[in-house]
């Protein structure tokens, strides 16, 4: 019995899941609207973009790296997709463009971090700027309007599949696939090994550079494809699309128990973290608290989540930037 209780408490996603349940119950009691289908759709639709990126970011964070360039990539990709579509190109061509952008950014990040062994924080901060600059140059003052959005993407942004928004389904399926891969395949398990103890992983014969490179490549690819999600969500894209999204994504991962110090956490946690942050945003509105407090609450929650995590785990030692050395 005792071990079972211990085991349940060891599930990293438990605290954040409980927090989510509590938030939902409180909000639902205060405002029954929250329990309706439209309340559910609001939350799930609102979370789709961050959840998708959080799944990809998990790959990187468990290796004790970080990818800050995702916000620029997803914004640029959303714009490119809309722009290509408005010039009469087909859906798959547009998606291919988004993917190509994501792969390019991922390759640059991955090459510098994995093979040149440069700090990912600096590298991806650099690519954040470069991609954003190129994006702004290409976009100028143009705005992608609804009539320029490719048909299938527009459809997915507006419609639901038996009440579940398509966009959330995309994020959810991605989570299931990546979650399965990260649990079951050896090469993805290696990412955890790299994040827990780099030296040991190297000595243990893990091809560290290749794994790191591929993880960054995958994160880039997802960010590129997720441009379609961003475009579908807002039906518009302009030079500021996706600005600052990287911090929301990292926050969702960390709240969901993906430790910044590497080696632990799952994509399920990251998605629950994203949903929790989104639900709280909605809850503030439902409880009649001014929207102004929303950011402050999100920040406090992030700090509370990592404090709790630190309290619960004895394994992680104190810290430098990314946690224990």
């Amino acid at each position: 019995m005792k071990t079972l209780v211990k085991k349940v408490f060891r599930v990293r996603e438990l605290p954040v899941f409980l927090a989510l349940v509590i938030v939902v119950i409180i909000t639902g009691t205060a405002n029954p609207e929250f329990f309706t289908l439209s309340g559910f759709q609001d939350v799930t639709l609102g979370v789709a973009v961050v959840a998708t990126l959080a799944v990809a970011q998990t790959l990187v964070i468990v290796m004790k790296h970080i990818d800050l360039s995702v916000g620029s990539t997803i914004g640029f990709s959303a714009y490119l997709i809309g722009d290509a579509s408005s010039q009469g190109h087909g859906f798959w061509y547009c998606m291919g463009l988004g993917l190509a952008l994501g792969l390019t950014v991922g390759t640059v990040n991955g090459f510098m971090v994995a093979y040149l062994r440069l700090p990912s924080l600096v590298v991806t901060l650099g690519t954040l700027y470069i991609v954003r600059g190129l994006f702004n140059e290409v976009a100028g003052g143009n705005t992608i309007t609804e009539d320029m959005v490719p048909g299938p993407i527009n459809f997915m942004g507006l419609n639901t599949f038996f009440g579940i928004p398509y966009l959330f389904l995309v994020a959810f399926l991605l989570m299931l696939v990546v979650g399965f891969v990260m649990r079951r395949t050896r090469s993805a398990r290696d990412l955890y090994a790299i994040g827990s103890n780099l030296l040991a992983a190297e000595l243990g014969g893990i091809p560290v550079a290749r794994r790191v490179f591929l993880a960054f490549l995958a994160t880039g690819a997802v960010s590129g494809l997720a441009g379609a999600v961003l475009l579908a969500r807002f039906n518009t894209a302009a030079a500021n699309s996706g600005n600052g999204l990287e911090l929301s994504v990292v926050a969702a991962c960390v709240v969901g128990g993906v430790a910044i110090a590497g080696g632990v956490g799952t994509v399920y946690g990251a998605v629950i973290g994203a949903i929790l942050l989104q639900a709280i945003t909605m809850a503030l509105g439902a409880l009649g608290i001014p929207q102004f407090w929303q950011l402050a609450v999100n920040g406090t929650l992030l700090i509370a989540a990592i404090s709790l995590d630190r309290y619960l785990s004895t394994r992680v030692k104190p810290t430098s930037i990314m946690g224990a050395k």
């Binding site: 926050a251 001014p290 102004f292 999100n298 920040g299 992030l302 990592i306 990314m322």
Partner: peptide
């Protein structure tokens, strides 16, 4: 938060980034 509680500064200051910015809005509104 970093020295006494022992949290990684990257994560802490992403949190306080949002917190302090939120307090700006709480103080001044729009």
């Amino acid at each position: 938060l970093v020295t006494v509680i022992g949290l990684p500064s990257l994560a802490v200051t992403i949190g306080t980034l949002a917190l302090f910015r939120g307090l700006c809005y709480a103080l001044l509104g729009n």
